[in-house]
């Protein structure tokens, strides 16, 4: 039966020992550990939350980056297109200008040639006239060296002038 009967001395010592253990552990033991565990748990939770936010932010940034890249690409295309257009334009203008210049030069050249041709013709004509007059002079001089012939020629000329007047009168 003594197994089932609590013993006062034992009860006293156990309560004392438990009280001391509890007091010591209450002061230096468990609160230190549990508060640290709680703090770490909070830290981990916060870190997880932060990581999640950071991930979201990174996703945002990535999206922005993609947008920027896309935009840049479009801008590049546009610039290229503009450049092509400008090149075409410049080339066209240059060609036109060159054509115009060429035509102008050709025209100038033609005019020059014409001028020179005319000049040359005039010179030839003058020379020819001079030669003709000189020839005529020589012929006339030879013809008119005989007095009869001078007379005949004058008469002939007078006839011709007369015919000329008649012809103009009949008209």
């Amino acid at each position: 039966m003594s197994l089932l009967l609590p013993d006062a001395g034992l009860l006293f010592w156990m309560l004392l020992a438990f009280g001391v253990v509890f007091a010591v552990l209450y002061k230096y033991g468990f609160p230190v550990i549990t508060s640290m565990i709680d703090a770490r748990k909070k830290y981990i939770d916060d870190a997880l939350k932060e990581a999640k936010e950071a991930n979201e932010r990174i996703a945002d940034i990535e999206e922005q980056c993609n947008g920027l890249v896309e935009e840049a690409r479009q801008k590049q295309m546009e610039i290229l297109r503009e450049a092509t257009a400008a090149r075409e334009q410049i080339m066209k203008e240059a060609r036109e200008k060159a054509d115009a210049e060429t035509e102008k030069i050709i025209a100038e050249a033609k005019r020059e040639i014409e001028q020179q041709r005319t000049d040359a013709m005039n010179a030839v004509r003058e020379e020819a006239a001079k030669v003709a007059v000189a020839v005529a002079e020589k012929i006339l001089r030879k013809e008119l060296a005989v007095k009869d012939r001078q007379q005949a020629y004058i008469e002939k000329l007078v006839d011709e002038v007369k015919d000329g007047i008649k012809e103009s009168d009949s008209k």
């Binding site: 609590p6 034992l10 309560l15 438990f18």
Partner: peptide, 11 residues
């Protein structure tokens, strides 16, 4: 021991 268990239960 019943005294020990009782002491703990009393706490």
């Amino acid at each position: 021991n019943i005294s020990i268990a009782l002491a703990l239960a009393l706490c």
